[in-house]
Design a protein around this nucleic acid. Structure first.
Lengths: 101, 101
DNA sequence: ATAATATATGATCATATGTTCATATTATAA
DNA sequence: TTATAATATGAACATATGATCATATATTAT
């Protein structure tokens, strides 16, 4: 008889949410871009060649997850990463995947 | 004018698939359990108090992603982790989340 | 051979997710 | 104050996802 670590449902839920945030190609592209350079919404949309609306929706999602933050400058909002651990997780995985396949 | 790293669609797709595998509570529980101990399908189902069918489906998913492997013993299949990097990613994030919130 | 046990699989269904369109909001510039 | 620019938002839609049910498959024991 072995004692397993009991499952903390709330913890598992949080962990899954973190990974879910990183499970979409658009969000990965956004985060990876912001990792390189703070960007406005339009800059992101142009760089990724995607709808401004799509980017806004995903930024809202990332903001609610506290993965990005924004600052205003004139009429623009500049977004940047706001969770170091998650960014490390992402960049680490990109690097590892690149050197594996 | 800054030169950004060009986006490798295929790479991003692979990375997102890895995170997607880790974005579901049931799969996290399965992997976390297998991290502690090699288990048969029924052992997993009983431990997690879930349907055998549900577990089988998720194990198939994880197997196709090369995140778990199985070995036969009599009528049973024993599953265990098969991707060290992904397991490190998971355990690291569980640990970090635990100590953060 | 047959029954029992363990696992796999296909279909179905409800819900979640991501994108787009149209439009609202907000701040600056003229 | 009005026009413009940048961003946010809500509704709608198509697709993806995860669980369940019923049943198939495969191996062992009798």
């Amino acid at each position: 008889m072995q004692a397993y670590q009991p499952i903390d449902e709330h913890l598992i839920e949080q962990v899954s949410q973190t990974f879910k945030a990183l499970s979409d190609p658009t969000r990965i592209k956004i985060l990876h871009l912001l990792f390189q350079k703070e960007c406005s919404v339009n800059e992101i949309a142009e760089h990724l060649n995607m709808n401004q609306s799509t980017i806004s929706h995903q930024l809202k999602y990332l903001k609610q997850m506290h993965l990005v933050k924004k600052r205003r400058e004139k009429t623009m909002y500049y977004y940047s990463p706001d969770d170091e651990h998650v960014m490390i997780l992402l960049e680490q995985t990109i690097k590892h995947t690149k050197h594996t396949t």
